[in-house]
Design a protein around this nucleic acid. Structure first.
Lengths: 158, 158
DNA sequence: GGTATTTCCGACTGACTAAGTCAGGAAATT
DNA sequence: AATTTCCTGACTTAGTCAGTCGGAAATACC
C-alpha cells in the first residue's frame, strides 16, 4: 500500500496537470476539490516543491503549478520522493541499498532472487508511466471506451 | 518494502523447502542458521501454521515441516498472509477493498488507473512464483550460470 | 503604507505498527 | 518424572502516519 500522503500527492499532481499551461491552482482549491485536508496538503505541496516537481507563487492569486509537462513527470519518481525507496528488499535497492545482516550470500539468496523479479515487473510499469499517461487512461474510461478503465477485476486480482 | 517479519518467514520457508520430504526443522536450527531472533521466529512460525502452510510436532525431536510441496506454495500467498493486502491502493484490493472517501468516481480516477497497471504487473509475478521456483533460481545462481542470479542491476533499477 | 491573501515552516499530537523480548504453559519423548 | 520442544499472551521500545496549530514571509490591491 502506498501512503495516504502519496495518494494525495498524486491527486494534486493530476489536478495540476489538468489545468491549462501557465495557470496555477491554490492548495485551498485542490484540497476542496479533491477532499484532502488543507493543512496536510500544504506540507505535501512543499515536498513536491522541494523536489522541483512544482513551482509556486505566494500572496494573492498565488498557487502551485507544474514545472514540467505531465508527460515528463513519472509515477515512480513521485512515489520514491514521497514514500522512499520502492524496492521490496533493502538489498535490492540501488539508492537505499542496505545489506541484510543475516544473509550469507546475497547473489544466491532465494528470497532475493524471487523479489528481484517482482521488483523488475513493478519498475517496468512504474518508471514508464507519466501523469499524462494516467490522465489519458482516465479520460478514455470517462468516455466509456471499453478496456481502458481501471477495472482490474477481469484478471485474478486480490 | 516488505516487513522484516515477512522476510524471515520466506527464509524459514525456503529452509524448510530444502529439507528432504518427511523431515523437519526446529525453530532453534532455523533461527541459528538464518540469523533470525529465535523468539521472534517462533511467533512467525505460528502464523504460518495458523494458515496451514506448515505443520508441527512438539516435544523432543519436534519441529516444523511443510504441508505442501514447495511448488505449491506461492509467494503472493505468503506475503498476503504476513503483511496483509498487496494492493497499492485500498480501492484496488479485492479482499480488503475500501473505498477512498475523497474519490468522486472510482472507475475514472487517474491514480487508480495508473496503479491498477502496477498492481497487475506485480501480481503477475508474485502469484506465479513458488518456493520451488525461487530455490531453482537460487541454485542456478549458485552454480554460476549467467543470467540466473539475482543481479537486477543490469536494468534501470533504483 | 496597510491589509488581505497566500505560501512557507516548525513544533506538536495521538494513534498505530514493527520488531522484538520475556515468562510461563502444554504436549510429546525418553 | 524430566526434558525438550512448541505454543501463547503480555509487554516494551522505537518509529511512522496522518494530521493539526500557530505564526512568519512574500505578494497583490487599495
Amino acid at each position: 500500500m502506498i501512503s495516504q500522503r502519496a495518494r494525495y500527492a498524486f491527486k494534486a499532481l493530476v489536478a495540476l496537470s489538468r489545468v491549462p499551461v501557465g495557470e496555477s491552482l491554490q492548495t485551498k482549491d485542490i484540497a476542496e476539490r479533491e477532499g484532502i485536508p488543507r493543512a496536510f496538503l500544504e506540507h505535501i505541496m512543499l515536498d513536491l516543491k522541494r523536489d522541483r516537481l512544482v513551482g509556486s507563487r505566494r500572496g494573492k492569486n498565488g498557487g502551485y503549478f507544474l514545472l514540467k509537462p505531465p508527460s515528463e513527470i513519472i509515477f515512480g519518481e513521485i512515489l520514491r520522493l514521497i514514500d522512499g525507496p520502492l524496492a521490496p528488499l533493502p538489498c535490492l535497492s540501488r539508492h537505499a541499498y542496505k545489506r541484510c545482516e543475516d544473509c550469507a550470500d546475497e547473489t544466491t539468496c532465494a528470497v532475493r532472487c524471487a523479489f528481484a523479479d517482482v521488483f523488475q515487473a513493478m519498475l517496468g510499469v512504474l518508471d514508464g508511466l507519466s501523469l499524462a499517461d494516467a490522465i489519458e487512461r482516465s479520460d478514455r474510461a470517462r468516455a466509456g471506451l471499453p478496456g481502458y478503465g481501471a477495472n482490474p477485476y477481469s484478471g485474478a486480482f486480490i
